[in-house]
Amino acid sequence: MIHDPHLLSYLQGLTVSLDPIERFKLAVGEPDEWQNTLLQTNPRLNEADRMVLALCGRQSGKSTTAGGLGYDDFSKGKMVILTAPSLRQSTELFRRILEFKNTDPFCPPIVRQTQTELEAHPSHGGRIIVVPATDQARGMTADTIIADEACFLDDDALTAFFPMRKETGRIFLLSTPNLRQGFFYDTWVSKTQVTRIMARSIDVPRRRAQVEFDRKTMPEATFRREHLCEFVGSGTPLVSWETLEGASNKEVRALCLT
Rank of each mutant, 00 (worst) to 15 (best):
D155V: 12
Q181L: 12
N249W: 02
E149W: 13
G235V: 08
P5C: 06
A160C: 07
R138H: 06
A247V: 08
G61F: 07
A157P: 00
D154L: 05
L87C: 04
D32E: 15
D135C: 06
D19E: 10
Y185R: 02
F100H: 03
W188T: 09
V211N: 11
I110H: 04
D32K: 07
T217A: 13
L153E: 02
V28P: 02
F24D: 01
D19S: 09
Y10N: 01
M51F: 03
E22H: 05
V239S: 08
T192S: 13
T116R: 10
P122F: 11
T114P: 11
C256T: 09
F24I: 01
S175P: 06
M140Y: 12
L38E: 08
H6P: 00
T168W: 14
A160D: 07
G70V: 11
L45S: 11
S90Y: 04
F223M: 08
P43Q: 01
S123E: 12
F94M: 13
H121P: 04
T222G: 03
Q193N: 10
V189F: 02
Y185G: 01
N36V: 14
L45F: 08
I21V: 14
N249E: 05
D4C: 12
L174M: 15
I110Q: 01
M51D: 00
K191D: 15
T168P: 03
F161D: 02
I202K: 13
V28K: 08
A199N: 05
G13L: 06
A133V: 12
S90A: 15
L179Y: 09
L45V: 05
V52F: 03
R196P: 07
V204R: 11
K250L: 09
A157I: 01
S60G: 12
P20V: 02
E30W: 00
T64G: 01
L53R: 11
